[in-house]
Design a protein around this nucleic acid. Structure first.
Lengths: 241, 241
DNA sequence: TCCCATTTGTACGTATGTATG
DNA sequence: CCATACATACGTACAAATGGG
């Protein structure tokens, strides 16, 4: 595949090489393999090592390669395994956060909160919070991972019995605390390595990120701050006004 | 602030410079400003231009700077805002769609609607609709492009006088038709080539996509269907409940 | 329209540092 | 301690894009 003579669109040398490497990664490499050393590749493509590195940079940025100083360049890319749901897009109500009847608990710990969480829930960095992580599947396909942060440590004992289902229902029925949605922030970004693994998507795939602050119905104090990451290729959020 | 003698952690020269630049961005620059030319900065830091570029690369990757070939390096970061989140982001109310006072008209045509638009507004594929495209900038940085589809062709004459400002305000004042938000769908995907060009982002960068259906206050019929594409690195949507 | 200065983008060359096994 | 391979840095040159004269 000669990409050097591409009539329609101008590409730089390093972009050509990146495209060529990407093609070879898909066909000739498997996850866990190492690329040939930069010197060899540079020689093969007849470019300076810097130019070759610039091409590899692109693929590292896309999450398909990982550099290991003194060792080599590791191949992370998997062959595409989900050709199916390019079309299928589920809808999900914007208010569904934390109330998925199908979600499953992945994590349940007490931990000092980060600055980000502290700011959101109005506590100090390092204050202990309950941290739950749940994963929602649709048709057994993971679509959404949610981190829940709860500042009221008195809930800890009860929450340890939460295994699956709707967290908000659980809190409502077990702790008699109906939660009120206070504010929501919606953003999008690329998936990080661990996230793409968890959600079984290619690295760098776009994610919808919904951050929700829930307050206690009774006292009005912050009860839960949740951050959900949703596969943007499968889910869209809907809202009726 | 001398970062060159940092006892605890080893930092490379370009990392020191990136940290220094980040510090200066916060204190001495505002969104929309331009950095001094790379040559000047390189001279100031007494490094090669490549080294300086490597430092700037870091801040570009973090979304705080944006390069414009032939022009300069644009500052995106808002002062006083950063320490809270890992990513400095503007916020935009979820209800802002079509009502940006700063938006500018890019396109204004009559055209047969696609199946997608036809489905949304409840007409037949091929039926003529008014199609407007507007671009919103913040501090002269493009952040959001919106396609508006309006089925009522009687508005065409009046709408041709719309140049900039808030489209919804224009419709309200010129056509005496207050619009009502009916439903909203939010998704995310990677930018296509043309979109990334228009929004001045790298290809494949994640976009927030908000599709809104607005109805006439009076008749309740569909008045406008809009599709907005927003740079996810700069804008997040907020909602108070 | 064309040219020109400015600024970023790409590419080559070279040298040395750092990490790994 | 050494060979290998990636990381950083300096130097140089030219290309491409932009904006102004």
């Amino acid at each position: 595949m000669d990409l050097s003579r591409h009539p329609t669109s101008f590409t730089t040398r390093y972009q050509q090489i990146a495209a060529q490497l990407e093609h070879e990664l898909r066909n000739n490499y498997r996850c866990g393999d190492y690329l040939p050393p930069e010197n060899q590749l540079a020689e093969r493509f007849a470019v300076n090592r810097h130019t070759l590195r610039r091409a590899v940079d692109e693929l590292v940025d896309r999450g398909w390669l990982q550099r290991r100083q003194g060792v080599g360049t590791l191949v992370l890319m998997r062959p595409y395994d989900y050709p199916l749901h390019s079309q299928a897009r589920f809808s999900q109500n914007l208010l569904d956060q934390g109330s998925h009847p199908t979600s499953e608990r992945l994590l349940s710990v007490l931990r000092p909160c980060t600055e980000h969480v502290a700011t959101a829930i109005g506590k100090q960095e390092g204050d202990t919070v309950i941290h739950l992580r749940t994963l929602r599947r649709v048709n057994n396909v993971p679509v959404c991972v949610i981190d829940h942060y709860l500042p009221d440590l008195r809930w800890w004992a009860a929450l340890q019995h939460f295994r699956s289902g709707s967290l908000h229902d659980f809190i409502n029925s077990q702790l008699k605390e109906p939660l009120n949605r206070h504010s929501t922030r919606i953003s999008a970004r690329r998936a990080l390595a661990k996230e793409s693994q968890l959600l079984e998507i290619v690295p760098q795939a776009p994610l919808l990120c919904v951050r929700t602050l829930n307050t206690c119905d009774s006292s009005g104090s912050v009860a839960e701050y949740s951050v959900s990451l949703t596969r943007a290729d499968m889910i869209e959020l809907t809202m009726e006004h």
